[in-house]
Computed example of a mutant assay.
Amino acid sequence: MCVRLGGLNVDDFRKVLLKAGLVMVVLGHLSFVAAAILHGTVLRYVTTPHDAVALQYCVVNIVSVTSAIVVISSGIAVIVLSRYLPSMVLRWTVFSSSIACVLLTLTCALGLLASIAVTFATQGRALLTVCTFGSPELLVLTPDCPFDPTRIYSSSLCLWGISLVLCVAESVFAVRCIQLTHQVLELRPWWGKSGHHVVQSPEPVEGHNLMSCTSSVPLTL
């Protein structure tokens, strides 16, 4: 007799969980690094409290960092669940944290899109509030400007674009983790049928281990 979860045997299901968790951890770290670079090179100079655009930039970056931390934590929980699959507490932890990841990453993606759109619309003026120029159309290096104004516009858009791609990828894998944990929790409202299937072997073997079943279904993320 062989226990299957969503068409996979237990061993393959653990491998799928492990891969999904590892990918989420990697994506979370990349997203965190991108947000840290953006803050260190651009946003730490944009400190005008009464500027709505500058405030929006900072809020989006905070959400991006928070989202990255939650994604990393959720990925670690998924990896632990792949080792301790019978734990009901871990199952619910991964399920709830994956939902939080989806909500945060989608919010982050929308915020990043808004930042990119606002930057295009304002031509990056909020990024240059700490610098003074004789002509706003002519960007040159000045002693009172703490960064290179000729590159701040393209650098910001590039980092926001990278963060946006990472947020979308994180949300995809978070949804995948929700689907996987849904199968082991047997929450019927979404997919209707139970994710557990018991396949009866035609010739039972004495001492057969349920964990040693081989899967005929290709392993995919």
Rank of each mutant, 00 (worst) to 15 (best):
A54L: 01
T129F: 06
S155Y: 07
L157S: 00
V71I: 05
V184K: 06
I76R: 05
C177D: 14
W160C: 06
G192C: 01
S82T: 10
R151Q: 13
V165N: 05
L90E: 07
I79C: 15
C58S: 13
S115V: 09
L164N: 03
S171Y: 07
Q179H: 15
S64Q: 07
V78K: 04
S115P: 00
G161W: 02
S155F: 08
W190I: 14
P189T: 03
I72T: 06
A100W: 05
Q56R: 12
D144G: 10
L157Y: 00
C131R: 04
T150N: 03
I62N: 07
Y84H: 15
P86F: 10
G161Y: 01
D144W: 07
L180A: 11
L110Y: 13
L166S: 03
S115L: 02
A52G: 01
L138S: 11
V102Y: 12
G134P: 00
L81I: 08
I72W: 02
H50I: 10
I79L: 12
D148K: 02
I116A: 12
F120M: 10
L139Q: 05
A100F: 11
E186R: 03
V118T: 15
Q183N: 09
L187E: 10
S96T: 14
S156M: 11
T142N: 09
C145S: 04
V168E: 10
L166T: 05
K193D: 09
V53N: 02
W191M: 14
S67W: 00
V78N: 05
V168Q: 09
L103T: 08
V172S: 11
L180Y: 12
V89Y: 11
V168P: 01
L106Q: 14
R151W: 08
G161R: 01
P136F: 07
C158S: 14
Y57K: 00
V60C: 04
L110P: 00
T122Q: 10
S73P: 00
R91N: 09
L110K: 06
S194M: 02
A121F: 10
M88V: 15
C58L: 13
R125W: 11
T107I: 04
I162V: 12
D144M: 11
